[in-house]
Amino acid sequence: MLLGRATRLTQAVTGLPKEYVGVMRLHGDVGDEELAEALSKFVGEIYQTPPVRSRVARRPRLRTVYELEVIEREGRDVLFRAVVSGGTYVRKLCHDIGLLLGTGAHMRELRRTRVGNLHESQSHSLLEIYAAVRAYSEGDEGWLKSILRNPEELVAHLPRVEVLDTAVDAICHGAPLATPGVVSYDRSIEKGDLVAMFTLKGELVALGRAEKSALDFDEGGVFVRTDVVLMERGTYPPFWKGRFRGPVSQGRAS
């Protein structure tokens, strides 16, 4: 559940790899070796066409199955664990495995156990969240404090760029980040990559698209085109304003 300005991170998060545990029901009897053979074919990069009932365009899309494991097997029921890239339909995966086996198969049950670095063990039930919010409204904030998390964790998988204090507010206004405003950057950045821009205090400022790869940084000019602003304007002073002078209370200059 994303709160406040963090709702703008939805897009960045849906692409995260996910882990699932599920039960696949085979429609025929299959030997262990045959099953293993079929599974091995689905690990790595695969193509998937989204099902009829989906919001996305029904074009075959390249997805990655990072890991497939059979935890336990009882006849035609297979308890499995799958680690897949964001947007991969596990139901379709089970269906296609069944096709390859020739017997057919379908997914009976599925539970998502991990999204990016977020584990099932860190989750809180809706009832607990509601109770913590109630406690907070009655003056006790400890419980709610322990449940709330920093959105920076949600972009830990993206390449990082650290910016100078003087560049922050301009970025908050949507300005692109030019090389003079950069303190550090990930060597892995390629042109077109989604990157996360941070202050030197570790606050997430905005997400953007790299205009050039890390190798071309020394060319100068615009480095990152600002895409999604997360930080509130005025958090840092508006150094970008020509007439700005001196420190500013609350970050708003005349």
Partner: peptide, 9 residues
């Protein structure tokens, strides 16, 4: 955090 945070549900 209520203005900029998240909860794993």
């Amino acid at each position: 955090l209520l203005r900029f945070g998240y909860i794993v549900v």
